[in-house]
């Protein structure tokens, strides 16, 4: 009965129009799945048995990407309710838990972000331990390093948004480094030498930290900047780099294996 029903659904015109092939029960159709589906075609049709073994890859790269998707979905939902202005940011965050039945969306977003930092580190650890950065994968290792940094930046820019004590002081500590940037931070080496006729060029009012914070300290301007960075700028950079990263995994011969 059930089999009859599934056969009917899978044989229908609607099914065929969506999937372009029959059920993935024959070798031919299993290959077709991977070729005909825009999401699945990130994968090859066939892969080395040793390469896709869970104990070999630990699935950490895939999980990092999955967590990025989780963060995107939960992040969009959070954006519906959160306003990045100092007057309302904190209250909006509190309301996400207090005013919503089973309000765990922010929790999933936050723990997902921490988990993503962990999975990306473990992914790098695995890639190193299997020597997978060696030729021809040198360039993709470099892209991966940048993606790791981008992951940390995504997490860091999001850290400010709850606008509580934890948020502003963690970000204050983090961004204080920027004022020590050589030449373009006002406390950095060499910046106080950039003087003409007693006019200081690099000051706390125009240095790299000021550009980052939109002010001399973490304030209203910083909140908006970090919101835009967190929701638009850094994710777009991450997506472009991920596209390159995945493309190159395929181009460089798929998951690494003994030569």
């Amino acid at each position: 009965m059930l089999k009859k029903l599934t056969d009917f659904v899978r044989g229908s015109q609607v099914w065929k129009s969506i999937f372009r092939h029959g059920p993935p029960t024959t070798a031919r159709n299993r290959a077709m799945v991977m070729l005909a589906n825009v999401f699945l075609h990130l994968h090859p049709v066939r892969a080395r048995a040793s390469g896709i073994r869970l104990s070999f890859t630990w699935c950490m790269g895939g999980l990092t990407f999955f967590l990025f998707l989780v963060e995107t979905v939960t992040g969009i939902l959070l954006m519906f309710y959160y306003r990045p202005v100092a007057a309302s940011a904190f209250n909006d965050i509190v309301a996400l838990r207090e005013d919503v039945p089973l309000g765990i969306m922010r929790e999933i977003h936050r723990w997902g972000a921490h988990a993503m930092v962990i999975t990306v580190w473990l992914h790098m650890f695995r890639v190193f331990m299997t020597g997978s950065y060696k030729p021809p994968r040198e360039f993709n290792w470099g892209i991966g390093v940048v993606l790791l940094v981008v992951t940390l930046l995504l997490s860091f820019t999001g850290y400010l948004l709850p606008w509580d004590q934890l948020a502003i002081w963690a970000v204050t500590v983090g961004t204080n480094m920027a004022r020590a940037h050589p030449a373009i931070g006002h406390e950095g080496p060499g910046s106080n030498l950039l003087v003409i006729d007693d006019i200081q060029f690099v000051t706390s009012g125009d240095d790299i930290r000021y550009a980052l914070l939109g002010g001399r300290f973490v304030g209203e301007g910083t909140l908006l900047r970090f919101y835009v960075l967190h929701c638009i700028a850094v994710p777009v950079i991450a997506m472009v780099l991920m596209a390159v990263h995945f493309w190159r995994v395929r181009k460089d011969g798929g998951i690494s294996g003994p030569l």
């Binding site: 991977m34 699945l40 066939r46 048995a49 294996g257 003994p258």
Partner: peptide, 16 residues
């Protein structure tokens, strides 16, 4: 890993 080098499997269903 080299022992299984030549053995290729279908990504659907083994990896997916």
């Amino acid at each position: 890993e080299a022992d299984e080098k030549s053995r290729k499997v279908l990504v659907w269903p083994d990896l997916v």
